[in-house]
């Protein structure tokens, strides 16, 4: 019983470490900002999620107290990762995007530019 739990927790920990590494490796390797965004937003979320789930299982089985803090952190990260990725992409496109977004930026009137970003 404990052996199976040990194996499961170890596998989940290794998966988490691997995906966090892949996310940061993609961040360092890929050639332009929009491609770089793909690495961290996906891989890191699953990586941290795995490590948090492993920690929850570890304290549940090892010490017998069920803690939901990790679950909350996981949910929080899954909810906020798309938002921060979207905000970063928007900032990049607004600053020096491709032709498409430049045309968009030109089309906006000054009043629209001054309106709060929702």
């Amino acid at each position: 019983m404990y052996l199976i739990a040990d194996i499961v927790i170890s596998i989940v920990l290794v998966i988490g470490g691997f995906f966090i590494f892949v996310g940061s490796f993609g961040l360092a390797k890929l050639p332009d900002t929009m491609r770089r965004l793909h690495g961290p937003t996906k891989a890191t979320t699953l990586g941290v999620g795995s490590i948090l789930i492993a920690s929850m299982l570890y304290f549940l089985i090892g010490q017998g107290n069920l803690s939901f803090h990790e679950l909350l952190v996981t949910i929080f990260l899954f909810l906020t990762a798309p938002v921060s990725a979207n905000v970063i992409a928007k900032a990049y496109l607004r600053k020096n995007g491709d032709g498409k977004s430049d045309a968009d930026a030109e089309r906006r009137t000054p009043a629209e530019k001054a309106a709060p970003v929702r």
């Binding site: 961290p40 890191t44 490590i51 990260l77 990049y92 600053k95």
Partner: peptide, 19 residues
Amino acid sequence: PHVTDRILALDTLTINAIA
């Protein structure tokens, strides 16, 4: 090279710190 790259790196660094 671009400032958004640095923001993205900081964001990733935070997530690594959580792990």
